[in-house]
Simulated scan of single mutants.
Amino acid sequence: MSQELYDLITGVAADSPWLVQALFEVGTNGAILALMALSALLLWRARNDRLVLVSILLTAVATVLAYLLSELLKVLVTQDRPCRGSAVALEQCPPVGDWSFPSNHTVIATTIAVGLLTLWRRHPGTAGLALLLGAFAGFSRVFVGVHYPHDVLAGIGLGTVAALAVVLPLRERVPSYSRSSR
């Protein structure tokens, strides 16, 4: 089923106008950069809000942990990339040995997006934008032809679990800093 969905999406990609193709090619990395910029902006704008500060810093920790776990999974699963057998990939196929499962781009984007989503009560617009960027990052990996849909779904799962497992339980345990406590 994943192969059929991959073929459908990459077929649509191949038939898309060059501007749409360019948007997805740039957006596959651009969405992650936008999520990082969104995190930095939120960090700067809410620099006096302990919950926001701690949540964003823990999101960074969760992102590194999720990335390392995804690299471990890649080595354990060793699934070849779908672009090796496809003539319609928009992006150059990564070298042999750069495994497909799970999608690192999706893991990183999802971890950041879910980390920002934990702040939805304070910053609903930011959380909504983060989810859209995360979803775009994952879908774009299939659209440009370098991942199967199940690679992206695994990345979403891993990123979500990492963000929720690190950010929610730990942000309440970080002591608050005050000048009077020095």
Rank of each mutant, 00 (worst) to 15 (best):
V75N: 13
I32R: 13
N48A: 11
P102T: 07
S103M: 05
M36F: 15
V64A: 15
L19K: 00
A154F: 01
T78A: 11
V96S: 13
S86Q: 04
T59P: 01
P149H: 09
L35C: 06
R141K: 14
L23R: 02
I108Q: 06
A130T: 06
G97P: 09
G145P: 13
L35R: 10
L129C: 07
F143I: 09
R45G: 00
A130N: 06
T106R: 04
Q92L: 14
P124A: 02
T160R: 09
A113G: 07
G145I: 04
A109F: 02
L73T: 09
P102V: 12
V114I: 15
A40D: 06
L129T: 14
G159E: 13
L76E: 00
P102S: 11
A89P: 09
A31V: 07
R141A: 13
L73W: 04
R50W: 11
L116K: 03
A89W: 10
D49P: 00
R84Q: 07
K74E: 08
G145S: 13
A135Y: 06
A60N: 07
R47N: 05
T59K: 00
G155D: 01
Q92M: 14
S103P: 06
L69T: 15
L33M: 15
G155Q: 04
R84I: 00
F136K: 05
G85T: 02
L51F: 08
C93P: 12
A163H: 07
D80R: 04
P82L: 03
V77R: 08
G125I: 04
H147R: 14
P95Q: 06
H147C: 13
W99D: 09
A66F: 06
V52T: 15
V26L: 15
F139R: 02
A87H: 11
L42M: 14
G30L: 04
V61K: 10
S70N: 14
A165M: 12
A127H: 05
C93E: 10
L164H: 10
A89I: 10
C83E: 05
L19F: 11
V146C: 02
V142Y: 06
C93Q: 11
